[in-house]
Amino acid sequence: MQSRAVWPLLALAVILIVDGIISPNFYDIRIVEGRLFGNLIDILYRAVPTALVALGMAVVIGTKGIDLSVGSIAAISGAIIAWRIQAGDPHGLVLVWALAAAAVCGAWNGALVAGLGIQPIIATLILMVSGRGIGMMVNLFYGGTDPSFQSAFLQGLSTGSVLYVPTRLFVFTGLFLLLWVLIRRTALGLFVEATGGNAAASNIAGVNARLIAFVAYVICGLMAGWAGVILTADTHTSDPVSVALYIELDAILAVVIGGGSLAGGRIYLGMTVIGALVIQTLTTSILISGLPPEYNLIIKALVVLFVLVLQSDKARQGIAAALWRRVRQ
């Protein structure tokens, strides 16, 4: 555990140190409009949607699956919010609707993967490509010309603050603990890892591998739904075309940076959050760096490569051996 956690944390530290050099007041935190305010707060604040999606992704990847449809699920739950608010539902109920829709999406993926045995990458691709269209259709239920809304409750969850701390950090912490208890304090986590490790063997051992996989996709859908709630309430507009675009890639990356293997059989919830923080720190750093936006993706790719090389035992041994040879010569 300890050695595995070192490398992503080291990468995070390196990025933060570089930030301090680029922008001297990078670490400043002060209180503005009754809440903490600063780059470090921004990183935590902006990392929440990616981290939520990545946690759900970590569970699905634990079953040796993958969910490409998380961005589309976020778009659908966002569209449901705007639609139900326009329809005049109480805002607590709107939240329930949005999450219910996300759970249904997750159940759909689960049914395709666990029920019909379709390969996860293909099964979830279906909702990935159609989900944003579904979101736009939901927008059309009320004309769709102005998909913006006002909601003290939902905007409070996303952009509000309690005791100077952004509310969404509490939402995130609550969901993280809930998931952690579910995975680590019940047998579910063990079953998921067993299913991912060897589905046939765990079936023989009495684990209902298909049911476990189904549950994993529902959990992933729900987490993506929460990300959709946070993102949609942030701009208080339903924008199914671009909300959470490519979030599935960042989520998968966060899981991998956190030490998860796409071969399944392992879930590292805490490390996945670190992975999401690495990605968001990088994104925020690029925004404040003042470099032309043309370089954004190249820099991101290079830093991700650096992090993954750091994590690779083979690469580290190779580099160490090469350095050692040079020293001896």
Partner: peptide
Amino acid sequence: VATQSGDFTTEGGKKVMEAFIKS
């Protein structure tokens, strides 16, 4: 003095302006 891409979206504009405010 500062320029970044917000991808023509509300979310993008908000993120970029948050970073500008700090930098």
